[in-house]
Structures are given as structure tokens and as C-alpha cells.
Amino acid sequence: MAFLRTSFCAAVLSASALSAAAEDVNIYSYRQPELIQPLLDAFTTETGINTNVVFLSKGLVERLEAEGKRSPADVILTVDISRLAGAVDADVLAPVESDVIAANVPAQYRDPDNRWFGVTTRARIVYASKDRVDPAEITSYEDLADPKWAGRICTRSGTHVYTLGLVAAMIEHHGEAETKTWLEGVKANLARKPQGNDRAQVKAIWAGECDISLGNNYYFGKMLSDEEQTAWANAVNVTFPEFEGQGTHVNISGVGLTKSAPNRDNAIKLLEFLTSPAAQEIYAEANFEYPVAPGSTPSDLVQSWGSFDADDVNLMTLAGHRATALRLVEEVNFDG
């Protein structure tokens, strides 16, 4: 195993050497290099502490479990509450008491026991055809089960973590029975079998296969930045439905301190830096997301899509509903 310094040069040092370095901090990350390199470079410039990163596509928690106390990782950086909750459940994160972080991260965006902290959020929005849908028609997630949308909705798999997060929020607000009825209604309104990623749903709207779709907001920015996909993005409006006045569903990217951290003090400095309003804004702009720090603002492009009030339920509460959400999705055979 090896870490790469954030200069991304060819030099690779052994994990054992890095874990003992006095002015280093070691990171396991699910986020792509281009999204975090500017922040890590800024941290090194400000503190003199080098950052070393292992980028993983999967198995981050399993790796920490296998390495145990010998793990060289100080910090994890990941997306989605299910992954953060999984790290908590596996007992690989340590609590951090920091007044700086507490001031930067509202309570609903951090673990109640301070084992992880949110940096940015992404809203689960509705993409709507500019030609065939009045955005004013879409005000709530509950409305997606209305028969007026029969044959008009596209979405990705019901078992995907993004979908399960939304279903978990529906359970929190309405209970299991009503959520199951809602899932049955949404399934009855599908234009096609759930498939593809969030961008594929917008492409389907552009192609006339459906009129509305569920997706994360940041894909709109990514499509606008892609020459081939700009036409898809220009075919839709983005809308921010709510849970009947309870706010728009959001998910999160977050950071946490590992229990094994060999460079604990440096790691806490990194967490405090990453949760600072300025760092959050840089991070949010790179991926078209929303910073969580009070007083921080998203990029001008993201702001141009409209504003919303986020659902204020603590995300760990939603994580507790994930198993039930999956069971309900399977009971209604949502993907069938």
C-alpha cells in the first residue's frame, strides 16, 4: 500500500514511513483528486503539513477494519451518509471535540457523537422538461406518486444509495406504511424500468422518453460542463421539491478522524481547515454542491438554479432507516 502526496508526482513512499512523519497527515478518500487537490494544497501552504492520499473506489471501511491499529490513515473523506454511518457502525472513527468544527458545521450535518462532520451537501432534486412540464407543478416528493405523472417519470435503481436516502427520509416523515404506498405510486408512474445513473435520466428527458426525473443537483453543473451533455441539461429545469413543507432532501460529503490515526493532532488541524467556511466554498464550487458552514454561499452558477430550505433531520437518523428503506423497495419490486 502507498500514499501519493497531493502534488501527484511520481514519488511514492511506504505507508509505514508516512505514518511516522511529524509533519504529515494521511487520508483515505472516495473523492476524486481534482476535487480535493486545491484544498489540500492550500492546507499545506497554511500549515506546512503535508497531505498524503490513497484514493479508493470502494472498500474504505473494510480496509480500515483489516488494518486495525496498524492503519496509517488519519482521516477519511467520503460521500453519502450511508458510508459515513457505515464507518461509525464499524467503529473505525474517533470522536473529535473541537469548538472550531462545532461552529462551522450545523448539528444536522454532523454525527451526534462527533465522529464525522459534513463539508458540503447535495440536494435530491427533480429535473423537469422545459417543453412539457411547468416547474410550478412540482412542489413535493409526495406529489411524485400522483397519477398525473403516469408514464412520465424516470429514475435510477430503487436500491441505489441515493434512492434509499430519499426513501429513508420519507419513512422519517411519514412512516413505513405511507412510504410503501408512495413507492407503489411512484413505480406506477415510471416511464421505463429504473436504470442508469442520474445523468442518464436527464438524457432520457431530452430524448422524450419521460418528462421528469430524480437526481442530485451537482449533475446539472457537470452536464453543463460537458460538451456532449450540455444539450441534455439545456432541455430541463431544476426544481427543489420538499417533504410537504419540511424541506428538501439533502445528502452529504464528510470527513472523520480514524481511531488509529498516527498523526492525530495534524489530522484535527486538517478537519478544522476542511470545515472552515472558505474551504467549504472552494470544495462546494469544485463539485457544484452547497457548503454547510453558517454564512457560506455556493458558487454563482449553483445559486442561479434557485434556493431551497433543507430538511433539518439529522442525517444519522436517516441512516437508521436505510435497512427498512431497502426492504420496502424490494417489497414493492420497484426495479421489476
Rank of each mutant, 00 (worst) to 15 (best):
M1H: 07
A2F: 12
F3C: 07
L4T: 14
C9N: 15
A10S: 10
A11E: 12
A17P: 00
S19E: 04
A21R: 10
E23V: 05
E23K: 12
D24Q: 02
N26A: 01
I27L: 09
Y28M: 11
Y28R: 04
S29M: 11
R31A: 11
P33Y: 06
L35V: 10
I36C: 01
L40A: 10
F43H: 06
T51C: 15
T51K: 07
V54F: 08
F55N: 05
L56S: 02
A73N: 02
A73W: 03
D80P: 00
S82K: 03
A85K: 02
V92R: 02
L93F: 02
P95V: 09
V96T: 08
I101H: 01
I101Q: 01
N104F: 08
D111E: 05
N114F: 03
V119W: 00
V119G: 05
T121V: 12
A123M: 04
A123T: 01
R124V: 15
I125P: 00
S129V: 03
S129C: 02
D131N: 12
R132S: 14
R132D: 13
V133W: 03
V133P: 00
D134I: 04
P135W: 11
A136L: 09
E137Q: 13
T139G: 15
Y141E: 08
L144F: 08
D146S: 15
K148Y: 08
C154K: 09
T159K: 11
H160R: 11
V161D: 10
Y162L: 13
Y162R: 13
V167Q: 05
E172K: 05
H174Q: 13
G175C: 14
T181C: 00
G185Q: 07
K187I: 09
R199Q: 14
A200S: 14
V202S: 00
V202Q: 03
K203T: 14
F220L: 13
E227F: 06
A231K: 15
A235S: 15
F240D: 04
E244D: 15
G247K: 04
H249N: 14
S253C: 12
G256W: 02
G256L: 08
T258H: 04
K259M: 08
D265I: 06
T275G: 04
Q280E: 14
E281D: 04
Y283S: 02
Y283L: 07
N287M: 12
Y290G: 02
P294D: 07
S296F: 05
P298F: 00
V302A: 11
W305A: 11
G306A: 05
A310S: 15
V313R: 04
V313S: 06
M316H: 11
A325C: 14
A325V: 08
R327V: 06
R327I: 05
L328A: 07
L328S: 01
E330H: 06
V332K: 02
N333W: 07
G336R: 11
